[in-house]
Nucleic acid binder design. Structure first.
Lengths: 147, 147
DNA sequence: TCTTAAATAGGATTAATTCTTATTTGTCAA
DNA sequence: TTGACAAATAAGAATTAATCCTATTTAAGA
């Protein structure tokens, strides 16, 4: 990702924090920077270890709590998983996920064929839908048995 | 669920176990019976507490290990979650999920509009799809703010 | 019935997450 | 610019979820 793009996203992030009366701390900015540059839907521990390079005595709890705070104001998403530690997604635009059952990799994809996954009327009347996503389970290229 | 339906499903379950050379233990049958009668996508702990009524000294580990074994042979599914303990689904037919973000309830629904969630070609060529599901996040009836 | 590998119970261990408390630090108002 | 204060942090303790270890038991095939 380009530096200018990163700075733009950080700027938007800071504005979102202000709107929610969250203090702009260097830790929060560093955590957000790590997040938006990560491709792998990282766990809190992965983010922690990456941020630790810049802030050697940041605590795990700060990273974890911050990620949950970010999720609370909608700047990151907690990704659906099938057990194991929580994983975070800095891409909050509409997209879908492939889960490799072998290596655990989660791969983003967009597909206009799913663009309007309309919700059945019987559901829409009793359930307020906030987000919708197609989740595919399977085997990624690297994990598929080669013949 | 009717007793005859339960017995039929248990019979199929037993046959599946035999096909996979798994021993038919009373614990496994009891765990399976609890599962197919549960509507709430229970955690291992919930299953444990339910089975404990019948087997007062079954161990949590047995229940948990058994559930994972069942998932391995495909008689139950591990459901997608957003953190927290694993949850299990005895319904292995194609269906979709609503997740209430407030109470954590997971609601099954079927919808023929999603019946053929075709996979984009670019994905299908690099990823072997095993299952597909629409995951909706939102608020269930009980948790929606009333006006 | 006998043998044996698989499964279980129970407790210990590890992993993931959250809580507690003393200290520090952004932010807002003066 | 400074001071006050609520919010945020660091560090470690505590909790919850999951897994491992080992001695014992048991289902299933010979």
């Amino acid at each position: 990702m380009q530096n200018t793009v990163i700075d733009q996203r950080v700027q938007l992030f800071i504005e979102t924090c202000r709107r929610h009366h969250l203090k702009i701390t260097p830790q929060r900015v560093a955590i957000y920077r790590v997040l938006i540059q990560s491709k792998q839907h990282p766990t809190a521990d992965r983010v922690f270890r990456a941020v630790k390079k810049e802030f050697p005595n940041i605590s795990f709890d700060t990273v974890n709590r911050t990620l949950l705070t970010f999720a609370g104001i909608g700047v990151v998403d907690v990704v659906e998983t099938f057990g194991g530690p929580k994983r975070f997604d800095p891409d909050i635009t509409d997209h879908h996920h492939l889960h490799c059952m072998a290596c655990g990799r989660i791969i983003d994809f967009a597909y206009e064929g799913y663009a309007r996954l309309e919700v059945p009327k019987t559901i829409a009347s009793t359930f307020k839908v906030i987000s919708r996503r197609v989740v595919l389970k399977g085997l990624c290229d690297a994990c598929s048995p080669k013949q």
